[in-house]
Amino acid sequence: MTAPLLSLTWTDHVTGRQGHLVIDRLVRGVSSGGLRMREGCTLEEVTGLARGMTMKEALHYNPAGKYVPLGGAKGGIDCDPQDPRAYGVLVRYLSAMRPYIESVWTTGEDLGLTQDMVDRAAAEAGLVSSVQAVYRLLDDEGSARRRLADAFAIEVDGLGLDELVGGCGVAESVLAALDRAGVEYPGTRVSLQGLGTMGGATARFLARAGLRIVAVADIKGTIANPRGLEVEALLAARDGYGTVDRAALRPDDLELPGDAWLSAEAEVLVPAAVSYAIDAANQDRITARWIVEAANMPVLPEAETLLARRGVTVLPDVVVNSGTNAWWWWTLFGDIEADADAAFAYTRRSMRELVGQMLGRAERDGTTPRAAAHAIVADRLPVISERFGWYR
């Protein structure tokens, strides 16, 4: 792949905090990728995430679909989202990036930010929407925008549909891997890092499929129970940052150190919080058979090499957590309506097909699932470029 199309760093004149924008590629003149806010966010991190978005878009290319994949992009702000000044930094960042958001970059919630907060800050920055750059590609903008707004208004058992579809995609990736290996759901144990938007929804879908959630980590530490945690009670006890009120724990639930989720006795490990969580130094603590990347870039390359030597399979983020982004566009372009059952069915079917393609290619090529996903992207990008060009 080539270098990013655009890469820039912005400095907030009030706080000195920095923000980054990387547009990796344009398709039909538009790119897609969320905006994250976390202390220590770097341009290098955002560049890797933007490249990942190019891959996620290409992986969901369906020539017969109404949604045509966009280019990849990503934004990032180096600021603790719980800092009292964070919202002001966000508004000023969006104001500075307004020319790009109006013309070439569609964005939304990511680590540290909710879509409600992004929408509110975007309005203060004078933007019509955080995804307004894509409107010119729509056949009927009014109907499309109403459809997406209706979809965002849907709640299922107390959680928004926009929060649930990503977790549905992650869970379906886990289930597809278990089915391929002939492993039954009951008795399969899962440990998660993060109970925020992605981790919480993933925990719900896996628990309802019959898997046992034995450990969950948040900023306060790891909550564990080898008999299985009460997922719905933990979800109900979360704050806006995914931190669980310990008063909701049962007497036999354990409170362990923050990194205890890594070494939990489980078949499936789901890092669903920060990037770079698993490195060469801590990977040897993992006993799980599968690591399923719900977060972006949680497993460092050197760690993945060592894990592969030990027979641990990593299902990569570019496939596993791509459902949220795809759902936005499936809904906006009209492949699905604003309906929870339709969203879950379409997500499950699409993720099953994609995970199956990836694992099948990995077996045929004798390589890792990540290398197989990259190979699928390498096949599809020239097709997309031939049909739509690089920029127009």
Rank of each mutant, 00 (worst) to 15 (best):
P316V: 07
V318P: 01
N282G: 03
A303R: 01
V14N: 13
Y100H: 14
P257M: 04
R136T: 10
L234Q: 06
W261Y: 07
S31E: 07
A176H: 07
I23R: 07
D80W: 07
R38I: 08
A123Q: 14
L354T: 08
R38M: 14
E232T: 09
C41M: 05
A122V: 08
W329Y: 15
A248P: 01
S275D: 03
A58S: 15
D179F: 03
D162F: 07
P301D: 09
K56H: 10
E45D: 14
G334F: 05
T106E: 15
L164I: 08
Q82L: 09
R208Q: 15
I101Q: 05
S350P: 02
D341A: 12
N62H: 11
R17I: 01
V68C: 10
Y185G: 01
D119S: 13
H60A: 13
Y241W: 13
A280I: 04
W330N: 06
W327Y: 13
E353M: 10
E39R: 15
R238G: 11
A264K: 00
S322R: 03
R380N: 11
H374K: 14
L178S: 06
Y241M: 14
L35Q: 05
E304K: 06
V183M: 11
L254M: 15
S129K: 08
L21F: 08
P226S: 10
A277C: 05
M297R: 15
A371T: 12
A149F: 02
L164N: 00
G126Q: 07
V299D: 01
R136Y: 12
V190A: 06
A236D: 12
T202P: 11
L90R: 03
L315F: 04
A308T: 15
L113H: 06
T54G: 14
T287Y: 00
F388N: 13
D110F: 12
M351T: 10
W390G: 14
A58L: 14
I376Q: 15
D150M: 05
A280Q: 09
A303W: 00
G142P: 00
L249I: 11
G210W: 10
R212G: 12
G126A: 08
L235C: 05
L6Q: 09
T15R: 06
K220I: 03
R380L: 14
S7M: 05
A176L: 07
E155W: 00
G228A: 08
V231L: 12
T2Q: 15
Y100C: 06
M358H: 02
E124I: 02
D379G: 09
L90H: 04
W329K: 13
L49V: 12
P301C: 06
L307W: 01
G200W: 12
R147L: 04
M117N: 10
R17C: 10
A144W: 03
V131F: 10
I23G: 03
V320Q: 00
M198C: 13
E353Q: 10
I154Q: 11
L94N: 03
I286F: 03
K220Q: 13
E353R: 12
T331F: 02
D279Y: 01
V30G: 09
F344G: 02
